[in-house]
């Protein structure tokens, strides 16, 4: 079964772990500080982590049992399609939480952009990847402004994290054109989560007495 694990699954498993860590930290921060946006960040990262973990576990299980099972290739394809659908839906839900936090940061914020960004999910199924790209792109741009407003290494790392995750979606979108882009997408996503992990390490090691 371990032999069936592919590089993208390993990278995704690490990314999921980082996502859970950031989510856990957000929850701890929320319990101490009481800012609701931290709770939304928690939901976002935990759901994102669950989505990635679901993909890793389900594909690993599928690859591991494929030879032993009597499933035909079309049946496996259908299964993978359903798994991908759940995976992308969980990603979109998590991105909606991130987008909500980003919208909250805009002073003249309203709930409308959030609703508009969510609506196409239920209207047009086939463009889920594109929708997730638009959502995460919005979040990344917001964190770019966040960094430009007040430059700090922590803000830069958060921006880079979301920027790399956004770039990964570009790679995923063009995977049908060139298959090798798939692994680039996962590497990019992985780098994004590593940026978030570095941010977390920096913050956890904050100097005493600050």
């Amino acid at each position: 079964m371990l032999g069936a694990l592919r590089l993208d699954l390993i990278l995704e498993l690490i990314s999921a772990t980082v996502s859970f860590l950031v989510g856990y930290f957000s929850l701890k921060a929320y319990k101490t500080v009481g800012n609701k946006n931290l709770l939304y960040l928690y939901f976002g990262f935990i759901i994102l982590g669950l989505g990635m973990l679901f993909r890793v576990v389900s594909l690993t299980f599928l690859f591991g049992t494929f030879k032993a099972s009597e499933l035909s290739i079309p049946a496996v394809k259908t299964l993978i399609n359903y798994m991908s659908l759940i995976y992308i839906l969980l990603k979109i839900i998590s991105y909606c939480f991130f987008a909500f936090v980003a919208v909250e940061q805009i002073k003249e914020s309203s709930f409308l952009p959030f609703v508009f960004s969510l609506a196409p999910v239920f209207i047009y199924h086939a463009q889920l990847e594109l929708i997730s790209f638009v959502l995460i792109c919005f979040v990344a741009i917001q964190y770019l402004f966040n960094f430009l407003n007040k430059r700090s290494m922590d803000r830069l790392l958060v921006f880079l994290g979301f920027a790399f995750i956004t770039i990964s979606h570009v790679f995923f979108v063009f995977t049908p054109v060139r298959t090798s882009l798939f692994i680039f997408g996962h590497v990019s996503q992985f780098v994004g989560f590593i940026c978030l992990l570095i941010m977390l390490f920096r913050i956890s090691g904050v100097e005493k007495g600050a």
């Binding site: 500080v33 960040l41 803000r155």
Partner: peptide, 18 residues
């Protein structure tokens, strides 16, 4: 205070005010 400083920096990294 030490814990709060960490969470404050975390929130700040995401552009959130406490």
């Amino acid at each position: 205070l030490f814990e709060f400083r960490k969470f404050e920096r975390f929130a700040e990294a995401f552009g959130l005010e406490i």
